[in-house]
Amino acid sequence: MMRLGYFPGCSLLGTAREYDESLRAISHKTGIELFEIPDWNCCGASAAHCINHDLSLALPARILALAEKEKLEEILVPCAACFNRLDVVRHELISDEKLRQRISGIIEMDFQGNIKVINIIEALSRIPSDGLKEQILKPFQYTVACYYGCLLVRPPKIVNFDRAEDPQIMDDVMKKIGADTIDWAYKVECCGAGFSVSRTDIVAKLSGKIIKDAVQRGAEAIIVACPMCHSNLDMRRSEIERLEGRKYSIPVLYITQAIGLALGISNKKLGLHRHIVPVKLPLKVKTVVEKEFVPTAKAEEE
């Protein structure tokens, strides 16, 4: 069992609740034990750091301090935006003692800086291959585009992802459950993030390019690990279609949902019915995953 502190973040209680549901649904079978941080607060997202720098440090710092109080060593943050905020703040505070003290004063808690923030991909990639293989009932044999987005992999010096410009770690997890992943150009491009409400036109433009490239290169589903990416690619589909002047039926799945499907968990439990774009995957002939998981050559080079 891998015991992890859990910070769901606000979206996972609302528009992205299927992300939370699917993560909890797969956690038992994949050996992840989630311990939700009691009384957590919002990380402040892009709003806080756009408006007030201290606030953008204090809100995540309180979350980290709460986790430390629970004697947790690692905290899993499924939302890429929250992950980015928490990890960046952790880095900023541990590298500046004065700042750490000042922020500790503001949040009325002492933040020590000895907790590690991990994202969903890192947690999933730790699941041993053999253990997972045994659990797979319906291999996820689709061609997928793994979409990492921007906040999961940047800034590279802080979040320390595998390959900043062409990450492989999500692809590797998807291959483990039987998927084929495409090599595409928009893996780490921005979807429009926090402009979902205020500048929907920009979201449609940026997310449109992502969907177009994924479809052109033969993807049957887009796999994401971020509620913002999901809502921009899924909820804003009609705006995208209007801008691009064509229909796109490609579904957008959280990586936890894809794993859940492979593990044979029901659509309902995984929250697939909550998507705006219906999750209709092409019918495939059922075969058991025979091929041994081989890390890609690219990943080996690293």
Binding site: R163, A164, E165, D166, K298, E301
Partner: peptide
């Protein structure tokens, strides 16, 4: 050319 992530890691 493998030196440059943004230019395709030599791929």
């Amino acid at each position: 050319t493998g030196f440059f992530p943004e230019y395709g890691y030599g791929n």
